[in-house]
Amino acid sequence: MTIDKAELTMNIKDGTARIRALEQEIKKSVIGQDRVVREMIIGLLGGGHILIEGVPGLGKTLLARTMAKAAGSQFNRIQFTPDLMPSDITGHSMFDMQDNVFKIRRGPIFCHILLADEINRAPAKTQSALLEAMQEQQVTIEGKSLKLAHPFLVMATQNPIEQEGTYPLPQAQTDRFMFKIYINYPDNEQEIDIVQSVTSNSVGDGLDTDKAASILSPGEIIALQQLMPTMTADEQIVNYVVAIVRATRSWNGIDYGAGPRGAINLLRAARGSALLSGRDFITPDDVKDIALPVLRHRIKLSADMEIEGYTADMILTELLDTVKAPRL
């Protein structure tokens, strides 16, 4: 598919306007999490999945619901528990007594945006079922392959506290997520806004997503996703991405660095960041800006670093300050 340069510029401008409108729409309901919203949208554009870590009560479900509504997409939520079975996610076949045939009942995974709440509370077998579906974009039930909806975005959440009785995701599984995003507490003014906004317009604990209107359709999201590969990524930018990822493998304090999948996702995320900034080309700033959420779950810190209280973000920030940025 070849796109004329002028046409591409137009598409980019149009696409940027739509994405910014989506961003504004989400921000109407989700207050004080601007960076998280931005990263979520980049994840949606990059066609990746997102692992969110944050304490309860910071609006993870609200964010997923609002995003699905604003993107005009179907939303489902699964609460992961220790007794959750793979078929509870993917679906199963059941015998129809009236018609005397087996019928397939599709699970909650058949949607556009799926919130997998507290993914680390389910056993490894159930986690694997979801993660395989994420990778292959299809589900097999009784030997029959069923394609998942497109676009398909999984938002899996983890709670950083209360680790008892959980099944931590292994490195190989977390690597399948494009981003690992931290949701932090909002600042004082934003929290006042949240409290006022929620208590003045609703009764009870229900999530208020009424403020967000449907801005995009699944088809438009696919069109935006297809715009991404057409953007200009200079060879120096690709080299920069690879240099960062390779540096994670030889850095002091990192036992295991990111693999090539990390570099691929970093470049995809940088394209999304550039698109959000209204450009049809990537700059080193796009790469550096998005490097932390892409790489933080792909590296394993050495034991002494963890004992001394260093986090992956601290080490990655240090690393990014030493990798030479390109100039053409």
């Binding site: 700059t283 080193p284 030479k324």
Partner: peptide, 9 residues
């Protein structure tokens, strides 16, 4: 200006 600085930095 460090060698790791991007344009915005």
């Amino acid at each position: 200006i460090l060698a790791s600085f991007t344009e915005n930095e």
